[in-house]
């Protein structure tokens, strides 16, 4: 697999490069800014995936997220994995909001286990979506007392977790040793219990699940009203 990296922290970038090479991946490009990455990627010789930091020069704000949108518009088939230092659901939601396949949001901590990183890179390059397990886990933990979640069976609960992490029915089935058909049934059931609309589109259902998870339904007068996402 061929990978390009844009990460401004030199220490971490070198470690990441070395890790990927040792794991047998080919690092074709490794730069310190999103702008440089955009400039040096050649349309006729794209890597399978790019890894982006969020806070990078020039303004150290959200350059990585902006570059991710830009890259997906230019090269829709390119896998884009944002490697972030923040457990912010809002960043993941922003990345998924356009509804494009092949994007992912992973915590930088995952470099401690290259298999997770390799799996995420493989999935984004194959057009799947990836949301870090900690981001999903944090939302699920905050909602543990929620009555709607309490109504799910353990299997459905586990299915929901994998679903929010961006896995396909086939992927979930593999992890849970279930047939894709069974997974499909679990998904349909849990969507019904959570009052979520199933569109059948894997790319949309990840976003819908995350938005549902992050809004506290029991939190007052907003109950029953439209759940808003503040992000511009």
């Amino acid at each position: 697999m061929r990978v390009a990296i844009a990460e401004d922290g030199a220490l971490f970038r070198e470690g990441l490069e070395l890790l990927l090479r040792q794991a047998g991946l080919e690092v074709v490009l490794s730069v310190g800014t999103a702008d440089e990455l955009l400039a040096r990627l050649a349309g006729d010789d794209l890597p399978d995936a790019v890894i982006l930091d969020i806070r990078m020069p020039p303004d150290f704000r959200d350059e990585g997220l902006v570059a991710a949108e830009d890259l997906k518009q230019r090269y829709p088939r390119l896998g884009v994995l944002v490697l972030s230092a923040y457990v912010e659901t809002i960043y993941a939601i922003r990345l998924l909001t356009p509804g494009l396949p092949g994007v992912g949001y992973l915590l930088k901590d995952r470099v401690g286990n290259v298999e997770i990183l390799r799996d995420a890179l493989r999935r984004v390059s194959a057009g799947e979506q990836v949301v870090d397990a900690d981001v999903v886990g944090r939302l699920l933990a905050a909602r543990r007392r929620d009555t709607e979640l309490g109504a799910l069976t353990p299997r459905e609960h586990e299915t929901l977790r994998h679903l929010a992490e961006g896995r396909s029915n086939a992927g979930i089935g593999q992890l849970m040793n279930l047939s894709a058909k069974t997974v499909e049934t679990h998904v349909a059931n849990l969507f019904a219990k959570l009052n979520l609309q199933t569109s059948g589109d894997d790319n949309r259902r990840v976003l819908a699940t995350l938005v549902w998870l992050r809004v506290n339904p029991g939190a007052g007068p907003t109950e029953g009203t439209e759940r808003k996402i503040h992000y511009t």
């Binding site: 922290g9 971490f12 890790l19 901590d109 286990n113």
Partner: peptide, 23 residues
């Protein structure tokens, strides 16, 4: 910002080394 650029980056570099060691 200092924590993000300093201590956190160093720990993440260590995490990458652990990843290499694991391989």
């Amino acid at each position: 910002q200092d924590l993000h650029d300093g201590a956190q980056q160093r720990l993440l570099a260590v995490a990458a080394r652990i990843g290499i060691a694991r391989i």
